[in-house]
Amino acid sequence: MKNILFINTGGTISSSAAGKGLTPTQSAADIISAVPEVKEICNVEAMTLMSVDSTNIQPEEWVTIARTVHEQLPSYDGIVIAHGTDTMAYTASALSFMLGALDKPVVITGSQVSVLAEYSDSRKNIKDSFLTASSELSGVFVVFNGKIINGARASKVKTKSYDAFESINHPYIGYLDEDHIVYNEIEPSVYPEGHVYNDQYSPDVFLLKLIPGMRPDIFDAVRNLGYKGIIVEGFGLGGVPFKEINLIDKIEELVQDGISIVVTTQCLYEGGDLTIYEVGQRALEKGVIPCYDMTTEALTTKMMWVLGQANSPAEVARMMATNYVDEITMPILR
Rank of each mutant, 00 (worst) to 15 (best):
I57V: 15
E37W: 06
I81G: 14
S15N: 10
V63P: 03
Q26S: 09
M47Q: 11
L73D: 15
L95G: 08
G11F: 00
Q26V: 05
G78K: 07
T9R: 08
T68L: 01
V52H: 04
N56F: 04
M47L: 12
D77M: 02
N3S: 09
I32S: 06
S51E: 14
A34D: 11
M50G: 03
V38A: 09
F6N: 01
E37L: 09
L73Q: 14
A46I: 08
M50Q: 05
Y90C: 09
E45Q: 15
E37P: 00
D30Q: 03
I13D: 12
T85M: 06
P59W: 02
A94D: 08
E45G: 04
Q72R: 14
D30H: 05
P36T: 14
G21C: 09
N56I: 03
S51M: 10
P59V: 00
G21Q: 07
V52M: 07
V35Y: 03
I31S: 00
A82S: 15
I81K: 13
E71S: 14
M50E: 03
H83F: 15
V69M: 11
I57Y: 04
T87C: 03
G10E: 12
E60Y: 11
L73H: 14
I13L: 09
I57P: 02
A89F: 02
T55L: 05
V80C: 00
A92N: 09
T25Y: 00
T48M: 01
I13Q: 09
W62A: 05
M1D: 03
T25H: 02
G19K: 12
G19S: 12
I57A: 03
G21L: 05
A92F: 03
L5H: 10
I4M: 00
A66Q: 14
S33H: 12
I65R: 05
D53Q: 02
V38R: 03
I79Y: 08
T48H: 07
H83L: 03
A34I: 08
A92H: 06
A34Q: 10
S93D: 10
E71L: 13
R67M: 07
S33T: 13
T23M: 04
G11T: 03
K20H: 12
L49E: 06
N8H: 07
I31C: 01
T68I: 10
T85Q: 11
A89G: 09
T48L: 01
I57F: 08
Y76N: 11
S93C: 11
A18I: 08
S16R: 00
A29G: 13
S16K: 01
T12D: 05
S33D: 15
T23Y: 02
I79R: 07
D30N: 10
I13A: 06
G84S: 15
Q72S: 13
D86C: 06
I13H: 12
I13Y: 12
G19H: 12
I31K: 01
T23V: 14
T85F: 10
A66D: 15
G78L: 02
N3C: 00
M47K: 12
Q58W: 04
W62R: 04
